[in-house]
Write a protein that binds this DNA or RNA. Structure first.
Length: 382
DNA sequence: CTGTCATTAGTCAGACAG
DNA sequence: ATTACTGTCTGACTAATG
């Protein structure tokens, strides 16, 4: 038996910005962006109204995390530098990100969906895949019911795409955003999927789409019409075959309902570029603090790490990493700091540094961790 | 004994995504 | 005064092991 799967992709609409609008309803209908680091918190006025920061008042190195649809209409999108977006939309409202609130709403919407359809794959804070396979209900009715449950639990809207696989469901959920439902079968691929830019496929990013464009391949339909051999020649066996498959809407990946973390990391971009010698003390303090935060995260989540790594980004934006694998898992801040310090010794520090990061990978659940044997015992045969 | 091959672990960069 | 932060995956390369 191999019946057609029914997979939904649910994506919250402008999630962070929408959560902010619940808190500040007077901003509804305005261009609002979320981003930057603290500072621009709204200020309560004597008359009870609030004063909000404008994008033109911003100074710093932050980027936009999310923007309302009104802001997007002004050409201001997530990932864009706040200084740059201030040129385009100087009067847009700027709010700091409030991750605790977003996590809270994330839990709420996921719980609401789980009450109807429990087979859920978590894809980050604002989206999920849902396996609707066994639910005996007409697809459209079911999708409406899920949307209503999410709204009842959060006051937020979402968009849902439903298709025979994850690839298509993901593309679908974006087709009628915001607050939309899109249901597509394999028959709809030529009409609804092939006209879309290749970039709409999850996994084709800026680099791959530029390479495709150089080959004259712009839409998913162009990609579907390209011989698999050509794609394999240009992208290699794995990627070439994958491109050919996805262009035809084929994807067999299962819904994955649980997973273990692979790495835990912390990084931060400085307010100004720092020099390894000149700003040595400051840099050292930040480095230690990052190690401590990684250690806290490891302990809180119950892991030890066998591979400790660092990341540096220089003034010219060139980025490098170094890591070291140690025989016994670590979760202590000082020990992590020592190993991270060894990594740092292998980096030539000529340029100024704008970002420093610390990463722990090779995670082992603390319960399974091998304890460091006392030195006196390590020489014994048993 | 030497060369080759397969396999695995470790390291690093880069692409991608939310 | 442009470009966050956290995390996953893959490919390339090297070294070690058998």
């Amino acid at each position: 038996m191999n019946s057609i799967r029914r997979i939904a992709h649910l994506d919250m609409d402008a999630f962070f910005a929408s959560v902010e609008l619940l808190r500040y309803p007077e901003l509804r209908g305005q261009a609002v962006v979320v981003g930057g680091r603290s500072a621009h918190q709204p200020v309560e006025q004597p008359d009870g109204s609030r004063r909000f920061s404008r994008l033109r008042e911003y100074a710093g190195r932050g980027v936009i995390t999310t923007s309302t649809y009104e802001a997007r209409a002004l050409g201001v999108f997530s990932g864009m530098g706040l200084m740059k977006s201030a040129q385009l939309a100087p009067e847009a409202i700027l709010l700091p990100a409030n991750f605790d609130a977003y996590r809270d709403y994330s839990r709420k919407f996921k719980a609401a969906v789980a009450g109807i359809a429990p087979l859920i794959e978590d894809r980050g804070i604002d989206e999920i895949y849902i396996d609707l396979g066994d639910i005996a209900e007409e697809t459209k009715v079911l999708a409406e019911r899920i949307k209503q449950a999410v709204f009842a639990a959060t006051g937020l809207t979402c968009s849902i795409g439903i298709s025979p696989n994850k690839l298509l469901a993901k593309i679908c959920s974006d087709l009628e955003k915001p607050n939309g439902i899109t249901i597509l079968g394999m028959d709809d691929i030529p009409e609804r999927i092939w006209p879309l830019p290749a970039r709409k496929i999850n996994g084709i990013g800026p680099k791959a789409s530029a390479t495709l464009a150089r080959l004259g391949i712009n839409t998913i339909g162009d990609l579907a019409a390209t011989p698999a051999e050509l794609l394999v020649r240009k992208f290699g066996q794995t990627t070439g075959v994958w491109l050919h498959q996805v262009a035809h809407g084929l994807d067999e990946r299962p819904i994955v309902t649980e997973s273990e973390p692979k790495s835990i990391s912390r990084e931060s971009t400085f307010e100004r570029d720092l020099h390894a010698r000149q700003d040595r003390a400051e840099l050292s303090g930040l480095f230690t603090a990052l190690c401590r935060r990684v250690a806290d995260d490891l302990q809180r989540q119950g892991y030890v790490s066998r591979t400790i790594g660092i990341k540096l980004r220089f003034a010219d934006f060139h980025t490098l990493t170094r890591d070291i694998t140690v025989p016994i898992g670590l979760s202590d801040g000082d020990q992590i700091r020592k190993v991270a310090g060894e990594c740092l010794k292998r980096v030539p520090l000529t340029q100024k540094i704008r970002l420093l990061g610390v990463r722990a990978s090779g995670l082992v659940p603390a319960a399974d961790a091998v304890l460091a044997p006392p030195a006196a015992q390590s020489e014994l045969p048993f």
